[in-house]
Nucleic acid binder design. Sequence first.
RNA 1: GCCGAUGUGGCGAAAUGGCAGACGCAACGGACUUAAAAUCCGUUGGGCUUAAACGGCCCGUGCCGGUUCGAGUCCGGCCAUCGGCACCA
Length: 862
Amino acid sequence: MSSERRKPYPFDRLEPKWQTIWDETRAFHAPNPGEEKFDPAQPKFYVLDMFPYPSGAGLHVGHPEGYTATDIIARYKRLLGFNVLHPMGWDAFGLPAEQYAIKTGQHPVVTTRENVAKFKTQLKRIGFSYDWEREINTTDPGYYKWTQWIFLQIYNSWFNPETKRAEPISTYRGDDPDEVRLAYVAQVRVNWCPELGTVLANEEVIDGKSEVGGFPVVRRPMRQWMLRITAFADRLLDELEGLDWPDSIKALQRNWIGRSEGAAIEFPVAAVYDRRNEDTTNDSEVRDRRYSIRVFTTRPDTLYGATYMVLAPENPIVDQITTENQLEAVANYRTQVASKSDLERTDLAKEKTGVFTGAFAINPVNDERIPIWIADYVLMGYGTGAIMGVPAHDARDLEFARKFDLPIRLVVQAPADQESLGFVGLGVAINSLLLDGLPSPEAKQKITDWLEEHGVGARSINYKLRDWLFSRQRYWGEPFPVIWRDGKHEALPESELPLEPPALEDFKPTGTGEPPLAKAKDWIRYSEHATRETNTMPQWAGSCWYYLRFCDPENDKRFVGQEPERYWMGGDQPGGVDLYIGGVEHAVLHLLYARFWHKVLFDLGHVSKPEPFQRLVNQGMILGEDGRKMSKRWGNVIDPLDVIEIYGADAFRCYEMFMGPLEQMKPWSMKGVEGVSRFLARVWRLIMRENQAGEWVRSAAVQDVEPTKAQQKIIHATVKKVTADIESLSFNTAISQMMIFVNAFTTADKIPVSAMRALLVLLNPFAPHITSELWERLNLDGAITAQRWPEYDEHFLVEDEIEIVVQVNGKLRDKITVALNATEAELETAAFANQKVHNAMAGKAVRKVVVVPKKLVNIVTA
RNA sequence: GCCGAUGUGGCGAAAUGGCAGACGCAACGGACUUAAAAUCCGUUGGGCUUAAACGGCCCGUGCCGGUUCGAGUCCGGCCAUCGGCACCA
């Protein structure tokens, strides 16, 4: 038959009905301290989603996975009596939104407004219980006013190494405050993406391509705004410890920060060929302190094995030390390296290349002359842009030394079963005069002490983390609240915030590196002698503090009021954000940047805790039905609204949670949705039946009777399991338990109302619409959202008789039923009386009997 | 190469060191129906035994070892897949 598929229950009518009621009654509005209806007696719970970029494509099934999980928690905590903060907003500045605007030829203001409207409609159709009165949009002047204000706090601060805290720049005693500001301008080799027409942060470049769009990225020196995140490297690292985050995310951040401990060592340059002084000879043994090369190493204990040095080709000192006859070779090599993109440079990493500079350095520990080379396997961006080559104990150095026939000297003895040449682990020092016989860790200490005593080295720590490149040459972002006067930058007065971008017709990137804002000639001109900064902030700026704004979104006096901040983000209660759920893709971007901003704000006294997100959970990616990543290319993308059209929002929500563990990657299955939909229909038919006229009426089986003993047991077992499972975010097994509950009642001829009350409240966070409707149809008191979460009584879970497992030599042989209070001796006797046990023992002698009360008896034979 | 995660039926998955596979999907059988859909009931890890049913027995959580009365779970060593970083000195 071609007629429309019959709905198993009328979700298409009742779901919009309840969504409207929730809106109209402000059912999920959370008042702030001091506001009407605020109850200070209740504990708070802040449960947050990573707010989306409202892209043109709309929601896909991945978004609602985390959102459903947080919604269940929010509704559950409300039923427990918590004051719950559960907000949603829009991260609408940035490349995706702007690329979409360019593609469709519309102004980003217009596309953003449309996309936000679309996202909001979709989210509402899924029935999420957000407090929409707290909705924020990073592109609202009322919001980015405070993003700019926070930038000024950062700009007007420095990191005091004594206190290890950010402090107002006024406490800095040096000559030039611009040298130490947490926001500064520097000429740096940036990641320039010609296709996007902007520079990108290191974190936004993946395999030499832009994270957004996958376009090639090249290195290019440019003057840019930087944020001094490196000053906070140790705190960002150390304070990860106390956070309730997945180990994998902590590991990613640790890895990204990349702290390594070692020593900095000075190698004087011997025989400097100085183009300004033709008299200097190559054979001079004079140590020339004017040209000393500093290296960083994590293995100072291998210093005696350093048989050459390598500089990064970009290292400026190369110009100073290269000898006349090597000038051409060095220049050629440097040109060749410069023409390679980062991608090519790593791609071609298979074979080592390099050139001798003609110069020599003196190994400070043994006065040996060692040749200085340049090679692109040494990076200018890490350490000092120079290394000591210890080929015997470093795989890269060994490869290089073999290729260019440089000497190799063993200085670490490997453990007996391993070859010492090429051994890179910790062993025992050899051929190292001062260090011979010492295990590597002690050798490190001793040689570093020696270097410090002789003034030629020191303990040193290096990080992979670079300062955050914070400016972009794009239109759709926050303008910097900065003006330029006589070549110097200064802060825009706070009273002039928000600084709105000019209304440009043509907002496309210029392609030259000049920002689009430069096209707005009137806007740029600030005064007779001053002009505005034309760069804009990156996408991440707005998301670095949005969780704070949610606490007090309307405040026009402060970025967040002190009292709401103290209440929701700290105060006497644990956690800042108590639960934060989102995708793993933000492990080193948003989550690192936001922690950094938060620490600056904390140091300056603007927020009450040093860390913003106490507990973090990553939802796993949802794959297409074919097991591949969802993508237009494979045609396997699922649109939530299509699913809701057929099965309803409740079924959609429950399926998203029933698929498997929240954090796991898992494939979508429409058949699976159907199964969950059948479960909800069974819940419906427990309470409702269809009359002759085809109307749903309350079933006569539902009666005000006492549950049977067996029913009591399953009710209390379900309350217990669902409660525990929600607490541990094991939503899939919570749903399983409710299925067991429903299956048990499906066949009952009398269904106690009390059992249905408990079920509906338990199921409400998962399937809020159907449970609200059934609650109303049962004529139960008040709204279901105003109920208290049921409690269980252990008393109902125990039985008089229990089943005991009987094993022989650890193998299950039979199960016996005994009284709950049976003694160990009684259990043992019962086990030995069992025929199967007797058979299995095959007449062998008993060696041992293990009795676990209420569980099992295990008989061990000889 | 380094770091992290994962490995259980045809599929998604469950299992405080104590009955492996709950719950759901798919499949098969049955009831209801003129028929189908929907719904309800039942079977369903593999193998052997038995005419069949009942029953009985053996094997089984990536591989190899270990600890334990007892291991999917704990320990050691491998293998595979996925994710991140990657010439980081």
